[in-house]
Structures are given as C-alpha cells and as structure tokens.
Design a protein around this nucleic acid. Structure first.
Lengths: 157, 157
DNA sequence: AAAGATTGACATGTCAATCTTG
DNA sequence: CAAGATTGACATGTCAATCTTT
C-alpha cells in the first residue's frame, strides 16, 4: 500500500486529534450544563424525532449507532431517571419499545441551549469563512456506511 | 445563541457520526491486524519518534492526549507485554521514563502496514479529488487547543 | 505547596452467551 | 434456526485521592 503523502499525513493527524479531543470537550460541556451524557442525549433526540416519541430497541440502537446491548444499558439508565419508559411492542412479542416521557422531553429541551452553545464554541466558532458544504461532503466520505432507514414498530420479514 | 443553519446542521451530523463510527472501524482493523489498541499504538509511535525511544510519563501523556493516569495504565500493559520498559529519570527523582524495547519497535513496524491499509480504506479511499489542504485546515480549527511542545528529560522549572 | 506518578473507585460500552418469540 | 433483548464478564480510561520528590 502506498504510504501517506504529506497532505494526507496532515489530515490524518488532525483527524486523530479530533477523535480524541472533541468527544472529551463535548462530554465535559454536557456534564456541566445538562447532566446528560452524549449517548443519553442521542437516544433522547432520536426518540423525540420519532412518531409518538417511541422506538423499538433495535432501531434505536441503529440510529444511535450503539450496540444493541449498549442501547439497552443507556435506556435502562434513562428509565431509572424517569426520562423514558419501556413497554412491549404490540405487534411483535420479541420487541420492546422505548417511549419518551414528558419529563424526558422537558429535560431534552432544557439541555438544548447548552448543547447549542457547545457546538458553536467547539466547532463553528473556528469555522468562520470555511466552505461548510465542502466540509460536510468530505466528512460524509470518511468511513462511509449504509444510511439508516427509518423503521416502524411492526413485525419484521 | 443562534441556532445552527442548514449547512451547519449537516456538518454537525457528519461530525457526530464520524466521532462514533471512525474510532470503532479503526480499532476493529487494528485488532484484526496487529493486536495493538489505538492508545497502545499512539504511545509506541510517540516513543519511536523520541530521542532514544524514551519519554517521561507526563510528556507521553500530553503527546498521546491521555490523562496521566491513563498513560500509566497503557504503559503498564505495554510493559507486561515486553514492548516498553520503565526506568526512573536520571535528572528528576519524581520522574519515570518509558523506553521502547527492540521487541516494541519490531511490533510497531509489524503493525504499520495494517494501519496504513486501514487509513487508506477508511479515510483516504473516499477522499479522491478532495482538497486535502482545505480539509486539514478546517479540521485544525475544530476544538483547537494549544500545540504540544516537545520536552526533554530534565528537571522542570 | 506544586509537580509527577500511581492506585482505587467508578462509568461506559463492547462481546459472547442466553432466553424468548417468530 | 434467526431475530430481538438482555445480562455477565471484561476492557478501557477518567476522576479523586495518595505518595514521593522538588
């Protein structure tokens, strides 16, 4: 395999730095402001965007890009905190559905301003004058994987 | 704070995806090929680039962007595997120095081709025709922090 | 007191195994 | 048997406390 060119090397280093530094910074911000971890936040956002604030565990795992077991763990935490409720699927005896509670929605809304500020500060403040379309296009090509289709609580094929 | 524009939103989503997906993909590749985790790899690379393959724990932690305690843990693992040796600093009674062994260097070299292939496959194969300079410049501005100065094994001020 | 290094307690999330239903 | 969900065992890395040396 051909070694990295100088420019590639530069991209690689920045990318590796980002992978370490950015999650830490964002998580620290979140801990300060809302008290929600990033995984918890993703789960809540996913639920809030779904119909009736409800999603099956598999879909939730796919959407949040956690393992199924990881999703189970996070949802368990959120249930204990009263932000989410678990109920069995009506259509599939194997299925469990996580449902966002009103408390959960409230907490999510309360966390939003902090997250926004964090995104601005850590990412977009530095990107004034950058071609954002080119940037997101480039990022989209890195570690590209299949898009995640929206599914519903039904029996699966 | 001003909400994210459409373009910003797109960048944000891709960035979040990357932060989750890319480390997993890279770690999986590494586990397959060399048997070194990414933290172990970073530590070994840092040592290999230092004079005499030796570095103080603090500097190693800064360079690898781990906590001091995190660095201690990784180095402990590497010592047990015989890839690194620990010795006290000659100049500072508080200091410990991690030294790359010949076995460690060999293992690092053995892991290199796999890492290169992984970098190409996961990142650069998708970036054909992308302006790499613009990309690394953009990445550099995200979560920017102070650069890490190269230090030596001496008494500190 | 401050810096360097380590350790204990803990949080998080993965993998493999397990249980239930389709 | 395959899919969905969960649990046990484990790896990794952080924070706070501790010990030693400056």
């Amino acid at each position: 395999v051909r070694p990295l060119s100088g420019k590639e090397e530069a991209v690689w280093r920045e990318l590796m730095r980002l992978l370490i530094v950015l999650p830490r910074a964002l998580d620290a911000d979140m801990a300060d402001s809302g008290g929600l971890s990033s995984s918890e936040y993703i789960i809540l956002v996913s639920l809030s965007e779904a119909t009736d604030g409800a999603m099956r565990m598999v879909d939730l795992a796919a959407r949040s890009r956690l393992t199924q077991s990881g999703a189970t763990r996070v949802v368990t935490r959120l249930c204990q905190a009263g932000l989410v409720i678990r109920r069995p699927s009506k259509y599939d005896g194997r299925g469990q559905v996580a449902v966002l509670t009103s408390t959960g929605l409230a907490q999510l809304r309360a966390a939003y301003p902090g997250h926004l500020a964090s995104a601005r500060r850590r990412v977009f403040d530095g990107l004034e004058g950058t071609d954002l379309e080119a940037l997101s296009a480039a990022l989209r090509r890195i570690a590209a994987d299949e898009p995640i289709d929206q599914r519903t609580d039904r029996i699966r094929p």
